[in-house]
Design a protein around this nucleic acid. Structure first.
Lengths: 189, 189
DNA sequence: ATCCACATGTAATCTGTTACATGATTAA
DNA sequence: TTAATCATGTAACAGATTACATGTGGAT
């Protein structure tokens, strides 16, 4: 139930409408906690019912700007400090690795190499975001400091993933070589 | 919809009952694709309806052993080779980082350090699994090779996460120092 | 005048979690 | 005989995705 807390967190920057928040989810938070429009409007309603946010201004086209209440900020702090993050990682990409034995070794190697290039591309995208952020020079505002720390995680993760994929592809080659040597041996009397 | 494919993948090792598979999900696949009992039995029913698996034997207590059909194996291969893995990572842990500015710097640093020790513990658990697997010496069976590759991902990931968390905690200290120097300067006439 | 961006909401469906419910077999 | 393990299933609920539905305001 962390969408709640993502919304509360974004509202610490100041009041915003569902529409505003949606754009933030699409860019800044897209890699960490994606959310759809449906989900967001629903959650805003529930947060308001719970008294964690409130409508602080209304604008054209039914626009409602929500602001954080004291209760909302308290809840956000509680979540940050007291609630243990869940460490589940359901990863599609790794699940496949377990079953790579059912396809031919060339196909398995191709899969791993592809994951390496995907990671490399992701890394490049993050590098661009970093460059853009450095030029903009947001200084030492909290969001800049912690945004930079989150970005660093992404940079390190993509490097790790690329290196791992390349290592894994090489492992398959080695196993293949051993198997052909082994097969030759067994062919001899 | 990858639970489907996890089940198909496990059945490549030979027929198994829902109960058998459940134990595998609890140990071997727990870190990659956890599944609950409810979910599993439901999925087995749907897979059988779809003709991707079939009951190959019945045992005591209503035990039903399912085996992979040709259609099931074909579907598994298709998924492995043709379907792009989803790269979404909804991570609780990183989402919090964005909002660490709303708690005191000591609290933020404590959070990051905690994430570092969590990663270190996870790393130790994986090391133990590795040792156990090496002693058991499964050789070059497909599952051993690819299981080892997946394990390596976990080992590298936990190292990366620990190093990142320690780096991040140091960053906060540095910012804190800069801020106090800045504050002192401004206090002077 | 017309189009695009703004702006909010609901319904259907899927996946997953927790809890409930039931009963058979086997080993001590 | 009794407790643990084996074994399957359903129901209620929460969270997320996709699609549908509607309408306003401002710029050209």
């Amino acid at each position: 139930m962390s969408l709640r807390h993502a919304v509360l967190g974004l509202l610490t920057e100041g009041p915003a409408s569902g529409y505003d928040l949606l754009k933030v989810f699409e860019v800044s938070l897209a890699n960490v906690w994606p959310a759809t429009q449906s989900q967001l409007y629903g959650e805003l309603g529930r947060l308001a019912d719970a008294g964690l946010i409130e409508v602080v201004a209304e604008g054209p086209r039914g626009r409602k700007e929500y602001g954080l209440t004291d209760a909302g900020l308290t809840e956000l702090r509680r979540w940050l400090i007291e609630v243990e993050p869940e460490s589940f990682r359901r990863t599609d990409m790794l699940l496949r690795v377990f079953f790579l034995g059912v396809v031919r070794p060339e196909e398995a190697r191709a899969y791993l190499q592809e994951q390496g290039t995907v990671a490399a591309r992701a890394r490049e995208d993050l590098e661009e975001i970093r460059s853009a952020a450095e030029k903009g020079d947001l200084g030492n505002t909290p969001l800049a400091v912690y945004g930079r720390i989150a970005l660093e995680w992404g940079l390190r993760f993509t490097v790790m993933q690329r290196e791992w994929a390349e290592w894994a592809a090489r492992q398959i080659d080695q196993i293949e070589e051993q198997n052909s040597v082994g097969a030759s041996r067994q062919d001899l009397p």
